[in-house]
Design a binder for these strands. Structure first.
Length: 199
DNA sequence: CGATGGATGAACT
DNA sequence: GTTCATCCATCGT
């Protein structure tokens, strides 16, 4: 019996709620006939209103258009020769999303290690660009419908997490709105990114 | 067409 | 702590 796919009603909510509830869910990639997956252990919310760090803050552009579209789509953008993966939240017209920042790898470890060129399991998906490389996600995935079981999707976890304690901190790497507590991380999880005091 | 800058990551000291 | 390679949409000539 296949795991329960996260549907549009899951994504079509406030990004703070979605960011919190995505922790412990599983992201699956079936790119290149290879399945790779991991448990989401760290997310960040980017708000439609009052959040200058959000890419949609200054209105729609060709680059951020996906953020203004329907919930449950992937918003993938290039940064510093790498990519970051977000799930679009709320309703069309509101540019909000949740950035997936770190995973605990589950399936396709050999594929992930090959894509990453690294061996240490703690370093495979501990950062937004790292997990994109690990799962084979690139700019072509921008706009992809995550509510279909096609190439990339998110589903309920079939295994219980060791701990479900959640730590909330400021976001990593943003230069504006540094005061907002919008980063969600499974407490003490070694697969998360950032320094230890942020876990 | 060249310059710029960013929700980064790796390799340094 | 630091530097810097690299992508690509956007913006200013």
């Amino acid at each position: 019996m296949p795991a329960v796919l996260l549907d549009q009603s899951f994504y079509a909510r406030c990004p703070k709620i979605v960011a919190r509830e995505l922790l412990g869910k599983v992201i699956v990639s079936t790119i290149g006939q290879r399945r790779s997956s991991g448990i989401v252990v760290e997310t960040e919310a980017y708000l439609a209103q009052g959040d200058p760090a959000c890419h949609g803050y200054r209105g729609p552009t060709p680059k951020n258009g996906t953020m203004f579209g329907p919930a449950g789509r992937a918003y993938v953008y290039p940064i510093h020769a790498k990519y970051c993966f977000n799930a679009v939240t709320q309703t069309p017209g509101l540019a909000s999303a949740v950035l997936i920042r770190a995973l605990q790898p589950i399936d396709g470890l050999a594929t992930i290690r090959h894509r990453r060129g690294k061996c240490d399991i703690l370093q495979l998906c501990s950062g937004p660009a790292k997990l994109c490389q690990a799962l084979g996600i690139q700019h072509w995935a921008d706009g992809l419908d995550l509510t279909r079981r096609r190439k990339i999707w998110l589903q309920e976890s079939e295994t219980r997490m060791r701990s479900d304690a959640i730590k909330i901190t400021t976001r990593i790497g943003v230069t504006s709105a540094q005061n907002l507590m919008l980063r969600y991380v499974l407490a003490d999880n070694p697969f998360a990114s950032g320094p230890k005091y942020l876990r």
